[in-house]
Design a protein around this nucleic acid. Structure first.
Length: 270
DNA sequence: CGGACAACCTGGCGGC
DNA sequence: TGCCGCCAGGTTGTCC
């Protein structure tokens, strides 16, 4: 989002193209095309994992899902190959905004009101009003595994599989711990850990494990700073124990069995 | 409420 | 080399 902003703000959309209609989620492709045409881009923002491109009378919303990429190409590079481009928006300066997605899971939306898409999302964890009390109120009081709760976008928005694992490790909490078993100190640790993990992810400009690329096409570096994600069998940077991988909430889940013990009272021995 | 699973899709990788 | 099965930064819906 930050990388796209300078290339997009003040541009005017003067055409679009697509070759996979299902990616155009709302409204129908015909209406989408007619309505977006000639609208000027006023701002580029974000809500949870949704990129919001503010137009004069609509919001162009993009979700990259697993393998989506959004980037701008200058006129001289428009012939450059990318076999996974499925939607293009022509800009008034001759450039082109491309949505590329090998798995075709990503979606684009054109709406008057953001609530049409993100109405059920929980609070933004990096906002100032996201306090420890809010965090605990959103996630606490139930028996679900903490990892599953962190991934639940209706309780807290924007935490994905990588940063859920990273936050739990930073807070030294096992991913299977029931939410109603955390003590006040653990709640506070996890609160700060979630924010720190997300903040660092943004600072490192995303994780380029396979497909993700920044707006300028280069790789983010978050993957070079993972504590547990994608590090199965490697030594924990804190204690040296091998990182383990299990399945929680149907997602691959990485943790250090020594730093993040499941048994109550189990104390890490280094 | 919550867990399991399928669906949506394609590509990369390890194993044989 | 080739084929097969498994895995993947996410979300939604169904069933139990």
């Amino acid at each position: 989002m930050r990388g796209l902003r300078p290339d997009l703000v003040q541009r005017r959309i003067c055409g679009m193209w697509f070759d996979w209609a299902r990616i155009i989620h709302t409204p129908s492709p015909e209406i989408f095309e007619a309505r977006i045409n000639d609208q000027q881009i006023k701002a580029v923002r974000r809500r949870a994992k949704y990129i919001l491109i503010e137009l004069e009378s609509d919001l162009l919303v993009v979700h990259l899902k697993m393998t989506g990429r959004l980037y701008v190409v200058p006129p001289e590079s428009i012939q450059e190959a990318d076999r996974w481009v499925h939607v293009k928006f022509m800009l008034d300066d001759g450039r082109e905004l491309r949505f590329s997605d090998s798995r075709k899971f990503g979606r684009v939306y054109l709406v008057r009101d953001l609530a049409e898409i993100t109405g059920v999302l929980g609070p933004e964890p990096l906002e100032d009003d996201f306090t420890l009390e809010v965090f605990q109120q959103q996630l606490g009081g139930r028996s679900r595994a903490m990892k599953a709760l962190l991934l639940d976008q209706t309780r807290i928005a924007g935490v994905g599989n990588i940063y859920a694992d990273e936050a739990l490790h930073r807070a030294r909490i096992h991913p299977l711990r029931p939410a109603n078993s955390l003590n006040p100190d653990e709640w506070e640790r996890l609160y700060h850990a979630v924010r720190a993990a997300l903040f660092d992810g943004v600072a490192y400009q995303g994780a380029s494990i396979q497909w993700y690329r920044k707006a300028d096409g280069s790789k983010g570096s978050s993957q070079d700073h993972f504590y547990v994600y994608d590090r199965t069998g490697q030594a924990c940077s804190t204690c040296g124990s091998p990182i383990e991988k299990i399945r929680v909430a149907q997602r691959g889940t990485h943790f250090c069995p020594n730093c993040q013990p499941l048994e109550k009272g189990a104390i890490a021995h280094v």
